[in-house]
Structure formats: structure tokens, C-alpha cells
Design a protein around this nucleic acid. Sequence first.
DNA 1: GTGGTCTAGACCACT
DNA 2: GTGGTCTAGACCACA
Lengths: 129, 129, 129, 129
Amino acid sequence: MFRLQERSATPIYEQIVEQMKALVAKNVMQSGDKVPSVRELSSMLVVNPNTVSKAYQELERQGVIETLRGKGTFIAESVAPPMAEERLMKLKDEMNRIAVEAKHLGLEREEFIEMVKQACEVWWRDDES
Amino acid sequence: MFRLQERSATPIYEQIVEQMKALVAKNVMQSGDKVPSVRELSSMLVVNPNTVSKAYQELERQGVIETLRGKGTFIAESVAPPMAEERLMKLKDEMNRIAVEAKHLGLEREEFIEMVKQACEVWWRDDES
Amino acid sequence: MFRLQERSATPIYEQIVEQMKALVAKNVMQSGDKVPSVRELSSMLVVNPNTVSKAYQELERQGVIETLRGKGTFIAESVAPPMAEERLMKLKDEMNRIAVEAKHLGLEREEFIEMVKQACEVWWRDDES
Amino acid sequence: MFRLQERSATPIYEQIVEQMKALVAKNVMQSGDKVPSVRELSSMLVVNPNTVSKAYQELERQGVIETLRGKGTFIAESVAPPMAEERLMKLKDEMNRIAVEAKHLGLEREEFIEMVKQACEVWWRDDES
DNA sequence: GTGGTCTAGACCACT
DNA sequence: GTGGTCTAGACCACA
């Protein structure tokens, strides 16, 4: 379910955040679903519980999960995501960074957009409607 | 020419790398153009020379600039960019990460692609061909 | 009568304490009124009886309710509230905390006081005297 | 400068957050002032560096301080505070909680408001204009 | 059982 | 020197 890369430059807790968000985006996990407890996931991934905890706190700040006192942690309903404006601006920045890199790698505009469209297929599937 | 944000989470040397690459992508700087020396740029940006040096090393590693002994540093000809495969894979990874974030922010597939296209306008302009 | 938020950071038993105190402050419940038994309330709110029990213990400690052996639990007469001095000091502390936060949010002194006055309307109504 | 209460129910890192915000509200610390480094403050307060770090990260999220890579941490310019709406709602909630407690302690409306005004004197002083 | 807090001590990237 | 990340292991409040 989760695959961590020890050697990667992106910290472990961020990898957990990203992968959890990916699972939600793919509808593998949905509103109300229980996520593994901090201790469970930490032993599954063979990382320190604090690391998982940090990831969960970040996910909660982003409105992806919510914790019910003593009961555990669950996928949140996706209403208005917090800090939406700042996050959208950051998104555009990263988009530009990627476009620049794509051009440096010699991709043409059409090739790049085709690549984006292919990526989209995974995250926006018709069968969700 | 360069605008650094000390507050930003991205390290300064990386900001220099990105902005230099952006200038090249926009054709503001072209093959053979001389780039400022480490000392010049570091005093222009009021940053530590080591920081600029680190940025230049990274740019050279990416094939964006090249140093000619005793003559200075120049924008390189864009032939086959080094490490193309790894960089392309990384590009796709980041594309996916961004798509996931876009979906979490409530964007529809079409809105996201529209955003990408708009970003492209800046980097692939007709007048270059 | 009671509205609990499982998501909230404040523990459930504290929410019960606060809401019971709010009902008394609004004169919805008055001296001598019977409050639901621990079992009743716990099944009404769908929470663990221990949680309600803990709330009632706290309310009794604060002199809000009192238990009469075999007869049940009732709203207490509001005479001298216990631990008044400590609680008053704590009140002032929290007042200061809130004022600091208000200033950080950019409120002016007058705006803040106006906000306080509006809050007061709910709790000190003329019709009680 | 900072006074921590080991026994208090409020966690140490939160006490640090509150006291730093209080110093800023009182204009003891102003935009651009350097705050002690994590290590400095942790040894001053005899707490673990991680605890101070957690406090600083929370302060950064609230827009109170900002870190300049490798240079240290500084009081931020107070522009639009992040999450302003949510924080304002929380402020009103806490205001109500405090008003209820005040009434339970037997304060009259006027006494309560007088108390608030006195608290304000400390945080909104005329000499700031 | 759950998550939250704290300590001690280590390593790393950035400037 | 700065802050950021991670580990190991402890204690506590809540349900």
C-alpha cells in the first residue's frame, strides 16, 4: 500500500503524506474510511511512530484526514480545503518549474501537454462521476 | 534579473538554478551568452559566493552552462541534456504529485489541463520556432 | 440539547461540561432542575458512560450540579462557587491569551471590545435580573 | 523573558508560542528582530531542542516568525495573518466559553467587561499609535 | 486501544 | 552556525 524510498531526498513523512493523498485521489480510500493507527503504520513501514505522527498531523492540516479522539484517524470529507489560495499559487509555481525542466529536456509543447494528459488519466477517471 | 526569496522553503542555490534555467527557456539568455562570474553574481544578489558556486556546479551538471578555462562561464549549446532518462522520470513523478494536489484542491481535469496550457504559453512561444 | 463534535480538539467530556454550564448560564436549566442520569445522557449522546461520568464529576467539582443519594443529579444552587480565586486567575489568563490572539489577527481595541459585548448579550439578558 | 510552568496542563511548546506572541503584541519584539536560535532558547529554558522547534514551526504557520535559511529566525512583518477566518471563529468560541465561566463565578456583565478593558490596556497601548 | 507530548541524542543540508 | 529530519523510548490523557 505504501512504498517508501529510504534514499530519496524527500523526507519519509512527506512521502507518507503524498502517498496517502494519492490513495484518496484515486478513490482507493474514501471519506470515513479508517486509516491505520500511528503505531500500526509505523510498524508496517518500519519507521519511527513519530515520523508517521508527523505525516498524519500534516495530512490533518491539509484537511485530508481527521482524528476522532481515542477512536482513531479517518479520511475526512473533502469540503473546502484549507489554505486553498496559497496552495493554488504554489501549484502554479511548481507547474512552471516543471514546464521549464521539460523544455530543457527538449520536449515540445505538444509532447509536454500529452504527458500531462496521460498523468491525468490516473487521477480523474470517468468511472467516478 | 534574479529575484531571490530568503523566506522561501527552497534553498537559495536552487532558486538561482531555477531562475537561470527559466531565462534560458525564455530565450532571454542563449547559447554562448556569458553569464556573470561567481563573484559578480554573489555581490549582485548579496549572497555567499559558495551559494552561487553551488548553483553553477548544479547548472553545469545539468548541461545548462559550461566553463571555459580562463574565459569565463557561458550558456551551453542545448544538445542532448545529461541524465535525460532519470530527469524525465523525476518529471513524471512531480507531474503526478501536482495532479494529486490539484485534485485535492477541487480542480476538475479540464481546469487543470487549462492551467497547464496557460503555463506553457510563457515557455513555448511561437516566435522562437 | 447537546451538540458534540467528535472532530474537535477539545475532549468530549469537556464539551459536555461547557455545554451544561452554558445551559445554566442561559437559565435554560435552573437550580433544582434534574439533569439526565449518566446512563441516559450517555445513550442520548452515543458516548461511553465513563465519558459522561467524568464530565459530571467535573461539573460537581465546579459546584454546577450536585448528586442526592438515590434521587439523582440536579442543578445546584449557585452560591459561592468553589475555587473561585484560582478560577478567576485562570479566567484572566485566558482573557489575555485571547486578547493577544485578537491583536495578532489585526483587530483594534474597540473592535475587540465590541466583540466581547456582543458575546455578553447572550449570557447576561435583561429579562433575568 | 520566558517563564515556563512545568506542571501546567498546557504543553510547553504551546506556552512558548503564547509567550512569543505576547512579546510581539506588546511590541517588545518587532518585525525583523532576531529571535533566539532553537538551540539557544532550548538551553535557556532547559527544554529539549525539539520542543522549541515545534513551537517555532507553529509560530511560523501562524505568520508570527519566519526563518531565513541558515541565517536564523526572525519576527515576521504582520501582514494578512494566515487562516484568519478560522482563527476568528475560534476566538469567538473561546470568548463565549470565558463569558460563561465568568457568569458562573458570579460576575455581572459590567464587571466582566471592565475586566476585559483592563486586560486590553496591556496589549493596545496609546504610545504605539 | 488511540494520538499527543517530551527527552536524548544523532545526522544532514544550507549559508 | 542555522533549522530540519529521524530514531528510541518514555509518559499521559482520552474513550
